[in-house]
Structure formats: structure tokens, C-alpha cells
Design a protein around this nucleic acid. Sequence first.
DNA 1: TGGCGAGATGGGATCGTTCCCATGTGAGAA
DNA 2: TTCTCACATGGGAACGATCCCATCTCGCCA
Lengths: 348, 348
Amino acid sequence: MTGHGSNGHGNSKRGRVTLRDVAEAAGTSRSTASRALAGNGYVADSIKARIQEAADRLGYVPDVSARTLKGQSSGLVGLLVSDLRNQFYAQLAAGVEQTLAAAGQQLVLVDDHGSEDQAAAGARAFLSMRAAGVLLAPVGKAATQALVDRGMPVVEVDRRSGVRGCDSVTIDSELGAREAVGHLLARGHRRIAMITDETAWDTGQARLKGYRAAHREAGVPVSRRLVLTLGLRPADPIGDVSAFLDQNPDVTAVFAANNVVGEAVWQELKRRGQRVPADCSLVCFDDMTWMRMVEPGVTAVRQPVYDMGVRAAEMLLKRATGIGGRPAAEVLQPELVERGSTLAVPQR
Amino acid sequence: MTGHGSNGHGNSKRGRVTLRDVAEAAGTSRSTASRALAGNGYVADSIKARIQEAADRLGYVPDVSARTLKGQSSGLVGLLVSDLRNQFYAQLAAGVEQTLAAAGQQLVLVDDHGSEDQAAAGARAFLSMRAAGVLLAPVGKAATQALVDRGMPVVEVDRRSGVRGCDSVTIDSELGAREAVGHLLARGHRRIAMITDETAWDTGQARLKGYRAAHREAGVPVSRRLVLTLGLRPADPIGDVSAFLDQNPDVTAVFAANNVVGEAVWQELKRRGQRVPADCSLVCFDDMTWMRMVEPGVTAVRQPVYDMGVRAAEMLLKRATGIGGRPAAEVLQPELVERGSTLAVPQR
DNA sequence: TGGCGAGATGGGATCGTTCCCATGTGAGAA
DNA sequence: TTCTCACATGGGAACGATCCCATCTCGCCA
């Protein structure tokens, strides 16, 4: 269907068809061929057609390396995420990819697995390939700083490292947490556990802040023992949750600070035969597929993750082309999706 | 923490630090600097140290475009998937990324959204950037053919287009389907619906074949009306499933041919208040997070998706470096995970 | 003492593209 | 007739790294 099959050779040396080959085939110079294919500068229509035809016939594909070397953009945009296996980052990447593809740019994806070293390596790679810009979910300041220092356009996504000079697109974590916990408080819950897996990142901090703010607003004191921090990449999250619930049998509701924790909490509640929400209510930050599949559905703070990817990519593209003014910080709003996992506090 | 902050300039022109700058700073020639940093050829230890120091001080980052242009590999590997938002492809990409990163290569991710045109555009981009190789989940023959014709190492993943000259890593879909349906037949089910969303790809075909084979083995005739094909990217899958169930009230079990369909079936069964498995059993091809979160858990054919990504990437790396012999076709085994969604056929 | 080869360095060509500039047309104005 | 200017084309120098090859200095052996 493609045409000539495997016989489309015509280049003198080995393998690649270069602009020179096209020019020779069309009987012109490389300069003219370049102008004809790029579409700028003067080229007679008849010659332009001949060159185009030759390019098609030979199967000419321009070499980005050469183009990039000459000073153009590489057409590559880097994206650094912390765990592609997590649906959150996958959605983010999907939004980014979609936007970049529409603009004719390619997505280079690096997973740092939460390690600053890996992030630094990724940043170096992006620099090395002359990426048009970089989107990153920061795991520390080093990578962002290195990129910004070298004048690379950077947009931070989901989290912020605090480095000056880069744009950001985030979701209002504090607001989301406040609404989620406020929702529980309004239903009479007074001993609400918050379980989180990291507090090093600003998202974790903000969610904790929201948890506290909701309590303050409701005039309910928050007890330190009700906040469980598992740490990033916990070895046995379910076991930890289990131990925590053993020690705090009085909690009537759990606020899980992200989807990974939420999964562990849900499984542990099921394992110990607790009914949700009759025995314990549950709200998760970050709405996942499974939360609407289970019975009852899990009340969750929905984050516009895909859109965040889209917006971040758009912002980066603008920054990469135009000169752009001061760093922009866009904050998207989360939305509380009420399902069946939250009930008024059980009377006992 | 990084060191000198934003004052690490020392280059003559604007922006980039090149090998020439490093050489000048170290008082040697570009040739020597190149040899010192690449680590091949003769360089006196003292000079090598001086060059290394200068490179670090100036923050030298080699330019891949230049290196690539000179004939080296670009260090980029393309991956073409059909829907990044689908956890299946995200897992696949994660496996690929992990393996490539360990080998110092970068992943360029393109989503074709199931469109042959987009796939072709992606292929052109990979060619253009002189990718070291390409991994793709084919949506047709065109893209693969174009790449293979030009001597690009290609490994097809999950599906095969039938193009000669490329490696492949797939999962035995027919076996998986046969086991899943056999599992239902062994429990007495005789009217088992198969619901799928595409039959253009060989995975869909193989699953249908497995469905038929299982029936043949059990000596149960298969009725055409029990196979529902929604088509790729159906507008209203749940509605279609609903209509199908209305027309075929006698089915006692459903075999959903992939996770997307499985989701629709599960939701529709829930919506119409059917109890799983009491009223209707369910088996899904492709195990997803939600299937082990719901109650009862959904019996599913687990595919080693992440591993498939790993193996495909390994295969490609080998092919890209060595000369490699004849095309290899690796087939991974799926595994039936029995959960609560399948029961012996209800007696009525 | 001459020669040879390992150790060490630099010069310059090369990869494929873009783009600046020089050169060359012909038409229309002065 | 000559000048100008829009149109049209090709030559050649970049871009930054690599690598072949020429050069040069030793130490050591015949």
C-alpha cells in the first residue's frame, strides 16, 4: 500500500537519503532544494514541484540532528515524572503528549522513580538533546535549578520545587484536602485519620495544611496521633495502615492523601472486614478508575490531571517560542466527587 | 547545593558551552578534549584531569545532535502506543522506559490514538530523529513497513502487523482466552457471551479463536449471536452492552475481551442490578487494578505487560547494537487469576 | 648511532542542514 | 539605453563532535 515496496533506493552511498540526493535527482542545488521543501525564500513553482516529487520518490526524511545543530529547535520536549506505573502520571503524560503532538513536537519521557539522581540524569539528557523545553514534576531543587540556569524553558507540574524562574501548573491541594475533610467534619466525624506517603513534596504539605484548616474552621481540635506518614515508597503500606488502625480504633473516617495510599487503606479495610462507610468512612485525594467501580463508590477529590498536562504543555510551547514575560503559576481547581463511601458518623 | 549557582558562565558567544570552550579553558585542542572526555585514544593523565575539571567547571554538556550527525546513534528509542490513558499501554511504556534508562537511552513516546495516519507521522518522526530503534504496537502495516524498509530496527509489541523483518514480543491471546472461557465452561456455563471492541488487530482475532477453541474442546456449540463486537472506540459501549444483554437474556456468563470492554460490562451489570456472579459470571482479559479492588474480585487473564515492555526493549537494544540474525518472535504466557466473579452456572 | 614504535597531541575533514551572500536573469521605469 | 528591483539560483560557511592522519618526542634495541 505504501507504494514502491523495498525498492525505493536511489542514494549513492549507503542507507540514508539526504538533501543532496534529492537535489541531484531534481537537478538543482542543495540550497534550492532546502528552500523548496522548507517553503521559505524564492523557488520557481516548476522547480519546487520537481524537487517535491524527487523527495517523495526517494523517500526523503530530513535529519533533525543536522537541523538542530544548525541552531533550530530539536522539536523534543522532555517530561520527567516520578512513576509512570501510577495512573496519575500516565494521565499527565497523555495530556502532554496530545498537546505536543498537535504542535508537531515529540515527547521524551523520563521516569525518575522519585530519585533526585535520576532526575538530574534526566535533566542532563534533556540539555544534551537540546530539548525545546522541559516539563517536570520536581523531586528536589537540583534538576530544575540546573535547567533554569542554562536558560532552558521549564514548567513544573503538580508540584513546585521553589526554584525561581520557571512556570508552573499545579492543583490546589490545600483546597482539595480542606473540602474533603470538611465534608467528613460536616457529617459529624470528629476523629478523622489522615494517611499520607510523603511530606517532602509540597503537595503533601499542602494536603496536611488543608486537613488542619478544615478542622480549624469546624472548631475541632486535630490530634497529632491521627496523622500517619508512611514515607515515600513504603515497604509494606498495608501492614503500616493495619498497625495504625489497631492503635487508633476510635477513628470513624480516613482521609487518604493520594491514590496509592487510598488503595492500601481500601484493601486493609476490606481485609479486616470493616464495612465502608458503615464502620469507617473514606475519602481519597485523586480520583482513580477503581474508585467508581467499587461498591460503594469512593468519595474522592478529582484532579484534572489530563488537563494539567495539556495546560503545562501549552504553557511550555508558548514559552519556548515567544519570549514570554514573568514566570506564570497556574493553579487548577480540584473537585470533590461524592460517592457512597462517606456517611454520617455511626452512633455508638 | 549544585555548586556555583547561576554564575557558571565562561563561554565566549551566547548560551551553550561547547567542546571548544572546554579545550580553550584547559589549554588543549578540541581533539584532545574529545578523547579525554570520551575516554578513548591517548591522553596524558595530567591533561585528562585538567580537561575533566574544566568541563565540570564550565558545566559542559555534549551536544547529541552533533554526535548523532557524525554517525553515532542518537540514543533515542521510539515507542508508539495506541492510548496512553489506558493502563495497559502505560504499564508497557513503564517497562520500556525502565529498561532503556538502564542502558542510557531515552524514550520518545508517541500516541497514535489508533489512527494509521498518526502512526505514520510517528514513524516519520522516529526516522527523522535517527532513533536507535522503534517499538510499536501496530495499528496497520504501513508504519512498520516504512521503518523496516529503511533499515530501522523494529520490535512489534502486543500485536503483530505481519510485516516481515521485525522482531516481536506478544502475549498468547488465544491461550488466555481459551483458559478463561474453558474456566467458565468447566463450571457448567453453556451460553457464554464474548464482548470485544476490535477484531481488526490480531489480538482480537486470537481471543475470538480461543473462545471458539474452548467451546470446541468442551463439545459445546458456539452461537454467533453471543459474540458482540463494539468496534474500536465505540461511542456508547455501555449502551451497546445493555442492548445486547436485553436481546440475550439467557447468557449466564460474559467473557470481556479486554479491560475497556470489561469496565463497560461491569458497570452495566451493576447498573441493571445484576449480582455477580450469582446472576452472571464475568471474566476479563487483561487484569486491571480495579478488578482486584471490587467485591467480588473479577476473575481475569493477567498479562505480564510490564515485562513485555522490558523484554521488547531488551530485544531492541540487542538488535540495535549487534547485527543480530533472523527476526525473533517471543511469546509470553498469560495467567488466569481466579477471583470471585465466576461461579457454577445458576440452576433455574 | 640510527631506527622503530608506543605515547601524546593537534589539524582538518566530515556528517546534513540552513542561511547569508553573490550572482544572474528579465521586466519595467527613467 | 541603462538603471533598478523583484525573482531565482548556487556557493560556501557555519553548527559541534568525532576521528583519521600527520607530526613530534621519547625510550630502547640492534
